[in-house]
């Protein structure tokens, strides 16, 4: 197969060189899953526009960011954890806890800046606790973060059983301010924050020693230790990062819903994990991209948008549809990235 393709390439060696370099990128196990996801995303968007009216508008794409800004930040935090071969099940409950802390403190009259600071510190501390459990006490990440999930959710109920409305002017303005982008398209400030988080994470993962250690941990912890990398510190830090991201996500979520509600964000951790996997990160660690995770979130958002435009799917067909589409994605990703021999 490869020889036939090579024969059909233009004789010009420069073009051939670029083409084969391009082909190498597309089929490399590192980039291929993300590129496949991008391709499938575009295919889905195209088919949506064909089928529904008012689908091919820039606002539909921008709404994906507006509605999922909190999930993008969450997926970024989850990427760090999964890259080291761990997992964090507490993120959904921590979103609920963050929003609840914000709502309760704002109700008590604490100024917005203080509220946000307290929330981020609290969630980072929770992440630190889980990280210490995992590293010092060698508790498995699944269990440690499951305990974190129960604890965060439990604290939500303790803080307030009923939901609390947020009326603070800063939060309200963050929720309703729209940044126009020409025409009738607009985005919220949360989108900017989410994109900033993605950019910072990208920089940290690819251009800092911490990031390199994170990737190394996922590859092989033993090798990392032998190489003299600060394995223990990094292992704990990724959970702090995840906790911090969950806190930021929770604050964005409270901008989004302007309320603290103890039953919110149940199961959101699975959405984050699905987004990270769709984005090409391996759950065994060592491979993955933050940009891929963000793309994974957009894919999930697009699936939901299409279901909403369809307008006829009952609750059960919706679940079957989501499961089916997820299956198609994962299988195609596997098939398309299988190394050719």
């Amino acid at each position: 197969m490869s020889s036939t393709v090579m024969e059909r390439l233009p004789a010009n060696s420069a073009t051939r060189g670029t083409l084969s370099a391009g082909r190498r990128i597309i089929t490399s196990p590192k980039y291929a899953p993300v590129l496949v996801t991008l391709g499938l995303f575009i295919a889905m968007f195209v088919s949506g526009g064909v089928r529904y009216d008012n689908f091919w508008s820039p606002q539909v794409l921008l709404n994906l960011f507006v509605d999922n800004a909190y999930l993008i930040v969450l997926a970024v935090g989850m990427t760090f954890v999964i890259l080291t071969g761990g997992i964090d099940l507490s993120v959904g409950s921590v979103i609920a806890l963050s929003a609840m802390i914000c709502a309760k403190l704002l109700e008590a009259g604490v100024p917005a800046a203080g509220v946000i600071a307290v929330t981020l510190i609290a969630t980072s501390l929770l992440g630190l606790g889980m990280g210490l459990m995992i590293h010092v006490f060698k508790v498995q990440p699944f269990i440690a973060t499951l305990a974190g999930m129960f604890l965060a959710r439990g604290l939500c109920y303790v803080i307030s059983e009923a939901s609390i409305s947020i009326n603070d002017p800063f939060f309200v303005s963050m929720a309703s301010t729209r940044i126009p982008l020409g025409g009738s398209a607009s985005i919220t400030i949360s989108v900017i924050i989410a994109l900033l988080v993605v950019a910072v994470a990208f920089y940290v993962l690819h251009y800092s020693r911490f990031g390199r250690t994170v990737y190394a941990l996922g590859g092989s912890e033993q090798s990392g230790t032998l190489m003299g990398l600060p394995v223990g510190r990094t292992k704990v830090l990724v959970y702090v990062v995840s906790g911090l991201c969950s806190g930021i996500s929770g604050v964005l979520y409270s901008f989004y819903t302007l309320s603290g509600y103890s039953l919110t964000a149940v199961g959101t951790e699975l959405d984050a994990i699905a987004a990270v996997v769709i984005g090409g990160t391996l759950l065994t660690g060592g491979y993955g991209f933050v940009l891929g995770s963000a793309l994974g979130v957009l894919v999930l958002g697009l699936i939901q948008t299409m279901i909403s435009y369809e307008g006829t799917l009952s609750s059960w067909w919706t679940r079957i549809f989501i499961g089916g589409l997820l299956l198609v994605f994962i299988v195609l990703q596997k098939v398309l990235t299988r190394r050719r021999d």
Binding site: L270, A274, W316, R319, I320
Partner: peptide
């Protein structure tokens, strides 16, 4: 060779939908 957590997540989502389909909610 799909990772077990994702492979079974698919059936977890779609399966509950199938169960609800059978009982029509």
């Amino acid at each position: 060779k799909i990772q077990p957590i994702i492979a079974t997540l698919i059936l977890m989502t779609a399966g509950r939908g199938v169960a609800m389909l059978i009982t029509e909610g």
